[in-house]
């Protein structure tokens, strides 16, 4: 064995040893409950729960709705997040710092508080409606809350940082002289962006999409509070089964299906990213 390979082997060995505590933790708090869940869903060796979940129009609709909302949220955060990330990454140090501070600020408050804040803003007697009525723009309050739009607004708000941060770090890694070179070679600003900056930041975009999409699939609090029971996502369905109907087997089946779908989405996105032409 060559010396270099010996060194490499030793590095891999110590890295493995150092990751043991984290692996044990993950195993205990993640893998074991997951397996318990799986066991619950096939209680008594029956697949009835899965048949019910996948066979009924109602539940399939919920799954499709969940994917639709996750897709919309991902597209919206991408459309809103990329420009912000680009602006942050291409401005001076002070602005960059300020930008990161503002993006991270919401993490200091609980997701519950942020969602309630949207209820205060969007409610029938909320800030927006009262302002519009007092200005005479509208006569009767607009139905801003308890619908899909409200859920989208709340989810986009919560998930935007997960899109901005990976794109920000990808844009920052792009050598600015590449853009200058493209412009010097005859590319307009838009062409330089589309042909050079965007392809070179695709890894950040893919990371952001993966994070936001998979997080969206399991969202619970925001649809529960801002959807007012009219927007049901899988997580809300699971909660209902456990808390109100005590149907652990069905909840377990739904969870397992959600997990499989999330992993499939994850795999699909990364596959798409890899086959992207250079």
């Amino acid at each position: 064995m060559t010396r270099a390979r010996q060194v490499h082997r030793r590095a891999v060995g110590s890295a493995l040893a150092l990751s043991v505590p984290a692996m044990i933790l993950l195993l205990l708090i993640f893998a074991v409950p997951l397996l318990r869940l799986l066991a619950l869903s096939i209680e008594g060796g029956s697949l009835a729960a899965y048949e019910k979940a996948l066979g009924s129009e109602l539940y399939v609709q919920v799954f499709l709705g969940t994917f639709k909302i996750a897709t919309l949220v991902t597209l919206l955060t991408l459309a809103m997040g990329y420009p912000v990330a680009y602006l942050m990454a291409t401005s001076g140090r002070a602005w960059q710092f300020l930008g990161i501070a503002f993006v991270l600020l919401p993490f200091w408050t609980s997701i519950l508080v942020r969602t309630y804040a949207w209820m205060v803003l969007l409610g029938r007697n909320g800030v927006i409606n009262r302002t519009l009525v007092s200005w005479g723009v509208i006569d009767t309050p607009l139905p801003l809350l308890n619908n899909e739009a409200a859920v989208l607004i709340g989810m986009v708000h919560v998930l935007l940082p997960y899109m901005i941060l990976p794109i920000f770090s990808a844009v920052r890694k792009v050598d600015p002289t590449l853009v200058l070179a493209a412009e010097g070679l005859g590319a307009s600003r838009l062409q330089a962006f589309l042909r050079v900056t965007l392809p070179l930041t695709m890894n950040g975009v893919v990371a952001g999409i993966t994070l936001v999409f998979t997080l969206s699939l399991g969202f619970f609090i925001t649809p529960a509070l801002l959807g007012g029971g009219r927007v049901v996502m899988i997580a809300n369905l699971i909660e209902e089964q456990v808390r109100e109907l005590l149907n652990w087997a069905f909840a377990g089946a739904l969870s397992t299906i959600l997990l499989v779908l999330t992993l499939a989405a994850f795999w699909g996105i990364s596959r798409l990213a890899r086959t992207r032409p250079a």
Partner: peptide
């Protein structure tokens, strides 16, 4: 223009 670090498009 030929840049100091060549500025070839890596992708």
């Amino acid at each position: 223009m030929v840049f100091q670090n060549y500025a070839l498009f890596p992708h």
